[in-house]
Structures are given as structure tokens and as C-alpha cells.
Amino acid sequence: MSESLFIEPGLQQVTVWARGVLMNKDARDIVVGLTEAAAKEGKHVQAWENYVDLPDRIYVPVRAYAKISTDPIESRYVYENDAPDVVVLVEETMVKGLAVLDGIKPGAVLVVNSRRSPEEVRGFLGDTSGLSALVTVDANSMSKALMTLSGAEGATDATGIGAGISAPIAGAVVKATGIVKIDNLANVVKNPDAMKRGYNECKIMKLEKTQPKKIKKITAQERLEQLPFAGTVPSPQVDNRGMVTGSWRTQRPILDAEQCTGCGICWIYCPDACVTRTDDGLVTFNLEFCKGCALCSSECPTNAVTMVPELDFKD
């Protein structure tokens, strides 16, 4: 009953996922670009980043949000969008192992920055119920991701909005959803040409109407019952299950056993202890935790480790 009391019918929610440090500025630009354009149309808007995802770390999943409404926004001071109409993935491997579709509204649209087809991308998502369309846009061929620390933590971004891959991705969002007028967005972003390319060249795959899966949330009482004394936890002896990081990876290390001399340099330099020296003088990689930083590959003196895009692997 109380759920229906608080529905905001004129409200659209956009949730953008990106990789920390390297793409969080572009994630921010997408939500700021869309809301600035919507504001020109007289809409009520709010754009923000997920405070708990910050400080962002290189490759960690981070989120940015937009609310665009015909009415004054009532759900202003929340951490996340609870029911996105649009989900955007700024980096393609985020279709693997992340709960990007949790809580979507029935009929939501997913936009993914990828050179792959929507069909291929869909294969990684698992349960796509609730989505009405899946869109891919090869934004990296139209622009480059912008990295800057300016604009972080609520300060002004001195580099402006929409010069990077945010422009073509936002263009694809507009093409697939019509959430704002493309001309208004063009006036807001610094790279309108890239924006137009994203608008024109994105690939849209329509899906059948289905109901999204229900997400069960843990209650405060359950948290209290599970809370150890003062939050103190035993020290892990194998790995830390509280922060499994394999889903950070955009590329995977592959060993060429012929070239490997067992020198151990990749092993000593892995910050995440994800390299194990084996008895046969080689190494194995812990893919449950490997973040794909590529230090192993970069430091290997015999070029025995190469980095391969993560989506080339089905597992």
C-alpha cells in the first residue's frame, strides 16, 4: 500500500555503471549531460554519483545517476536509483558478474558501450527479464575516455562536460529512449559530432515484454543479528570473501608456458597475490580475484604473459 503512495509517475531514472578512475568522469558526464539537456526542456532534474562507491579505485565498478521528472523530484536524498528506466554500461565487461539489472522497471532499456552486437552482449547478462531493448554503441571508436580528477567529490569539473566517450553513449541513450531532445543534448556536450555518431550508429535490439525478477533485500534486523561483536571479524587465512574482485577485470592474463622461465617476477609484483608459483616452475593466476591490472604482463621479461579481453571468454 505504501509503495503505491510514493510512486512518482513523471520520474525517469538513469543509472550509469563505469570503471573507476578511468571512466568515472564519463559516467558523470552522461548523467550531467542528460539532466542539463532535460533542464532546458523545463524538466526537474537531479544528477549525482554513488557516494559509497567513492573514493573510486582503478577498475572498480562505480555508479552515477540521473533523475528526470515532469514534477518536482520527491525522492531526492537517496544513495541510489531504486528503479532505473535506463541502465548504461560505460565499459563492456560490466555485463559479466555484476548485478546491473537489479531493480529495473519493466520495459527498461540497457545501453552498453561495446563494439560487439547486442546479441553477443546479451549472452553474458543471464536473466534479462524486464528489459525492452538492448543497445550497443562502439563509443571507443568515436571518442576517447577522459581521465581527470577535476570535478570529483562535488567540486566543479574544469574540463567541461561531454568531451569523451560520454557524448556518443549519451547520444545512443537518446536514440533508444527519447529521454531528451537530441538538439538540446548537442548544445550541452563539448563533442556534439561524437554524440551524433553515437545517436546514428548505435545498434538497438528490441526484446519481448517480460517482468523483471524480484530482488530480495536484507533487513536491518537481519544485519543486526549477523553483526559480530563490534564488527570484529576473524583474519582470513586464504582470501577475503568480503571483497571478491574478479569482476573488476576488463582483460585476463594468459600464460604462454613455452616462454615462461619461472623467474617469479610476475609473482612478486602482483599487488593482489593472484599469482601462484607452481611446482613445475610455472605460474597460475587466481581469476576469482585478479583485477586485470596487467603488471604481470608488463613486467614479464620474456613476454610470457599476454592480456586478452575478458569478454573473449565465456566463463
Binding site: V52, R223, L224, A230, T232, V233, P234, S235
Partner: peptide
């Protein structure tokens, strides 16, 4: 109930998310 002792290694004072705030304070 908790102690810094290499014989029983524990982690005291880990960072939490906001959702863990109410249970920690209520405890």
C-alpha cells in the same frame, strides 16, 4: 571479547557502508 593477539588473529575496526551504521550503533 576481541583482542589483538597473533594466536587468534582478528581484524578490529573495518570500514563500513552506511547500511551497517544502524546495526553497529544499535549493538
Amino acid at each position: 571479547h576481541h583482542v589483538l593477539d597473533p594466536k587468534h588473529p582478528q581484524i578490529i575496526g573495518a570500514q563500513i557502508e552506511p547500511e551497517q551504521g544502524p546495526p553497529m550503533q544499535y549493538q
